[in-house]
Design a binder for these strands. Structure first.
Length: 356
DNA sequence: CATTCGTTGGAGCTACTCGA
DNA sequence: TCGAGTAGCTCCAACGAATG
């Protein structure tokens, strides 16, 4: 559900936080990434499912600092014999934070590691003070999986009482699953997911990641997005997105598979990699915005020049909304992270912003 | 080609037990 | 008889694999 707008908000907030800290400190803040593998999914025998994958053929472990850091027991246990254990069993080097996004995906580089985040179903990115972060990860407990053995390995963090909104549900077990955090001296960017379905892909290399590595069209750019391909970004890679759209149209006009599928499904599923940044929310919202019946077959959109041109122009106009200063001013202002409880449903705020 | 399943957790509902 | 408490169930969301 976190779609184009939510990712824009995160990027904007992180960028502004770094800028503000740099101004206050007089120097760019340094950070490191910490992974909480005790919260990762286990999958099953029949259905292997992993929260994390790595690409580390360009990386040497001995580059990381040697100190007396003691990793968490449950994190270590979960990481044991995993190809990504090197990210958990030591402290990782600090570096400048660099950022990239493409459609629904988000990439953050610090030190030797770049992490590509696929926010999946309902992951949430929260910027908080270092003090709040420390309190948040202080106590863990078995998760809520009905299988007790699994629950003891798929753990959750106990939400400190001061973070619980007064008057909110007294029944619910107040826990949070923290998958990863980008930790600076004064603040932390925390990735949490109540359903644990977010996924990460870490690319490690022998040189620190730089913002130049993450610029559109860099040598690294194609590699960064291969694990979670969403297609060319409608704002950052407009030319490539338009070419992909035209190729899709050609296919539909040649009666390629899916030519009679409802347009709303094709946009939401994005298996064509043409509708980057769209998910179920934006697919429906966009078709409302463009005044197109969601059940209209793709062939109806593509078969007429004027109709298709209008469709194309509406995508360009619509996708701009989520990067506009007006949207970011209204939806990406930093507030107290716990203002509305742990689960702030961002997409509702986005919908309201557009519809009012 | 379309549909279902399986990886998750919480909401929301029904149906049930238990004690007063 | 009636309430509180709770066990158990369905549903839902993204997404890829498997199945019909």
């Amino acid at each position: 559900m976190p779609e184009d707008g939510e990712v824009s908000v995160v990027i904007h907030q992180v960028f502004n936080k770094i800028k503000a800290e740099a101004k206050k400190l007089g120097t760019t803040p340094l950070a490191y990434i910490r992974l909480f593998s005790r919260c990762f999914t286990l999958g099953t025998k029949n259905k292997p499912y992993s929260s994390i994958s790595v690409h580390n053929s360009r990386y040497t472990e001995s580059l990381e600092p040697m100190d007396d850091y003691v990793p968490n027991h449950f994190d270590l246990q979960r990481a044991s014999r995993q190809p990504w254990a090197y990210l958990v069993n030591r402290r990782l080097s600090s570096g400048q934070i660099c950022l990239a996004r493409r459609g629904k995906c988000l990439a953050i580089g610090v030190g030797y590691h770049l992490t590509v985040f696929h926010l999946g179903l309902e992951a949430k990115v929260t910027i908080m003070s270092h003090a709040d972060y420390t309190k948040l990860i202080e106590n863990d407990c078995p998760g809520s999986n009905p299988d007790r053995t699994k629950a003891s390995r798929m753990r959750s963090f106990v939400t400190p009482p001061q973070f619980i909104e007064p008057g909110s549900s007294s029944k619910a077990k107040r826990t949070i699953n923290v998958f990863a955090a980008i930790v600076a001296d004064t603040f932390a960017i925390v990735f949490s997911d109540f359903a644990r379905l977010m996924r990460m892909h870490v690319i490690s290399k022998d040189q620190h990641w730089t913002q130049a590595d993450l610029d559109v069209g860099s040598l690294e750019w194609p590699l960064i997005w291969t694990t979670f391909p969403d297609g060319p970004d409608w704002v950052l890679e407009r030319g490539a997105a338009l070419i992909a759209l035209n190729n899709w149209r050609d296919g539909v006009c040649e009666y390629a598979s899916g030519f009679s599928k409802p347009i709303v499904d094709v946009i939401a599923e994005n298996s064509t990699r043409v509708f980057s940044g769209f998910g179920r929310h934006l697919a429906n919202d966009f078709l409302h915005y463009a005044a197109i019946f969601p059940g209209a077959p793709c062939s109806w959109i593509c078969s007429d020049d004027i109709r298709f041109e209008r469709f194309k122009q509406q995508i360009l106009k619509y996708t701009e909304i989520w990067r506009s200063p007006e949207f970011l001013r209204r939806c990406a202002m930093l507030r107290r992270p716990w203002h509305a409880g742990v689960r702030i449903v961002q997409s509702d705020a986005l919908t309201r912003c557009v519809n009012t």
